[in-house]
Design a protein around this nucleic acid. Sequence first.
DNA 1: GCCATCAAGGTCTCGGACAC
DNA 2: GTGTCCGAGACCTTGATGGC
Length: 697
Amino acid sequence: MDSPYDADDGYDDWVLTDVEDGSNIVRQGTEQSVTGDGDQENFDINKLEVLVRRRKDWKESRKTKKPMILQSILGELHELDKNTELSHAEMQLKAGLVTAWLKKPLHARKPQITLRSGYRYSMRSVVRELYHDLVQRKLASMREDTGNEESTKQIGVYQQALTAFMQEDLSEEQLAAAEAIADKWNGMEGPTPEIKARNAARYGYKYCRNFAEEMWRYCGMRVVCFAGWKNVEGTVEACTMDFNQDIADGTSFNEVQNLEGPWRDYLGEAFEESGISDEDEDGQGDGRPGKKAARTVKVNAVSLVTNEDGTVLIGEIAGLSHDLLQKTVRGFMTAHYRRACRKATSTVPFKQLGTHQKAMIATRHLPPNFSFTVDPSHMSVTAATELLSFWHQRQDENTDDVFRFEKWLDRGGKLQPPAVDSSIPIQIVRDRRSRSRTPATAPAQSKAPAGRTQRSDRRGNGKGSTNTVQPNVQGSDMDDFEQASPVVLEGADMPGPSHDRHGRVSNGGKSSHLKRLHRRKIAADVETDHDDDPLDDGWPQANQRHKATPFPQKTTAPIRPDDAHRKDTCRVCNKTPFPGRAMKETNTSYVEEEASNSDEVDRSEGLGAADELPTLAKWRPAELIEFTAKIKDGSEHQGDDHLRSLPIAQDAPPNPVGCGNKRPEPNLILQLPVRAIEFLYEMARVRIPNQDRGNWR
DNA sequence: GCCATCAAGGTCTCGGACAC
DNA sequence: GTGTCCGAGACCTTGATGGC
C-alpha cells in the first residue's frame, strides 16, 4: 500500500469514488495547478469539476469517439469562459492541455496508514541507533566545551553532536557501512530483531488496528489479524486481533479460536519454537481487543532499588537507559516515601513535592540546588543521573543516611512526620494470600472501620478496581507493604517458588522442565506485587486470575548467551503487547512434548519452571543492563541474525562498573547483527579480525 | 438503622506519542 | 535528545441499594 497508485492500472475506481465527493479530486487538481507542470493549465475549481466529471467518459470512449468527447468537454469549459474570446490557436492549445490533463493519471490519495509504514532508515538514523552511546559522549563533551549543559536547545545540540560525530569520529568506511545498513534495513529484511521487537511493542497494535480500519473504510474489507513475533527477550508472543466489533458497528469473528491451533503450530515452526502456551492474557475473555492492552509492560520501579534484604539500594547507574534512570529515581523515592508514611501502595506526590520540597527532604539528601520541578517520568537524563549519582555516592559515604523523607503528605495535604521505625524493613505480618485471595470457604473479611471491605473478587469499588488486589483496611498499612515489596515475600511461609539471588523465581525443584510452557497469569499490577507472585501454583484458577488486566506482564525467560543449545531459548510465552485474544492453550500436548524432552531443556539452573519465570521488574539495574546486553548479544535467540558486537575502539576505557563485571561496558560496544557486520565489512573491504569476533561478549 | 455490597466519579500517576 | 500533551489505569471517596 505504499506504492503510489497508478490510475491507469486499475485505480480509476478510486478516482471515481473520489469524484463522488469531488473534494479529493478538486484538491488534487488544485495541487496540480499549484505544483504546476510547466505546460500545465491552471484549471480553476469549476473547470476541474468539469474535467473530473467528464474524465470517465473520455477514458471509456474509443479512439474514434474521443475527439467528440473532447469537443464536448471543451464546449463545457467554454461555457465557463463566456466572456473570453479565444483565438483558434488558443483553442488548440487549450484542447491540448485538456487532453494532456485527461491522459494524465489521477493519483488518488492513498489510504493513510500513518504508523511508520513507510519509514525509511537513513545513514544518519542508523548511526544514531548503532552509535547511540558514543553520540551521547560526543554530546556531553560538546556541552563541556561550551559550558552549556543546560542548553535550552537540546535538539539542536544533539543534532550538532550527531553531525559532528559522523564527521569527526566515523571513517568513510563506517559511514559507507552505515549507509549500506540503512539500505539493508529498508529492504524486506528490515532492521535488527531487537529493533523489530521494539517496533512490534510500540506500533504493532496500532498498525494492525489502523490497517483493519483503513481496509474497511477504503475497501469494505473485514480483517482479522493473527500476529506472532519475537520480543526483545527472544520469546515468541502471539495474539489474534479482531477489531471488527469496533469498526462501523461490525461484529466480532467468533471462530478465531478454531484457527489458533494451526496458527500456534505455524509460529512454532516460523520461529523455530516448540510450541506456544498462552492464556487469555487480556483477561477479558471475549477476545475483544482493548486499547489498554497495547500498553507495554511496567517495570516495578520500587523493586529496581529494593535489595533482597529489603533495603533500598541504588545499583550501578552507568549504562542505564533514560527510562531506567527515571524508574530508578521513582523507585528509590517511592520506596523511601512508603517507609516514611508506612503505606505500601502510596506514591510520592511529585506534584506537590516541588512546593514542599524543603519540608519533605533535607538538603543534605539532595544535590546542591536541586529542585523537583517534574516527576521522574519527565525528568531529564541529566537531572536523573545527577540525583542517582549523588545518592549512589552517599551510599558509600553515608550508609545510614542516604536518603529519607522528613515529612510526607497526608490526604489533607498536611505534612506529617515519618514513621518512627521507617528505616526498618517491614517484615511480613501475615500471609498475603489470606488477605487478597481468600478462598471462598474462608471466613469473610472483617469489615473495615470505614465501612468498606476489601475483597479481591468483588466488583465495583471504583474504576479499575476489579483488577487490583485490594489492601485490607483492617490490617494496618504496614501489612500492605509486603504487597509492594517483592523481597519480603520470600520469607513468607507459604508454598510457592522462591527467588534466587538474581531475583529469579525457582519453584523449589518442583519442576525441572524449564521448557514447560508458560501458564502464568497476567498480573493485575506489575508495579506492586505480582512480579514475584508465589501464588500461581496450587490455587484455584479463579483466584489466580486477575481480571481485566491492562498490562501484559513479561514472562521473561532470561536469555542466557551461555546456553549453547538453541532450543533452550525457545520459550514461548503469551505475553502480548497487543490486545485481542491471546493464544490460548487448549491442551497439554506441548507441555507433554516439552516434558519428554527434558534432557535438552533444563540447562539453566535457577530458572525454575517456565511458569514461574521472573520478570524484568524483579531485576536490579545492573541485572537489567546485563540482561539488555545479553539480549543484544544473545545470538542464539535471534535465529541466524546473531547479534554480536565488535569493539569499535581498541583503547576503550575499562568498564567503570567494576565490581567484578567482566563484561565490556555495553555502551562501548557496537552491536550489530553478525550478518550486517559481515555485510558492512564486505562493503568496506575490511576483514574482521578473529580476535574481535571472539570478543563479542 | 446498620451494614455489606455495588456503582460511579474524581484525582493522581504513569507512560506513550509526537513535535521540535 | 527534551518538552508537552493526553489517555489509561490505580486508588480513593461517595452515594445508592438491599438484606438483616
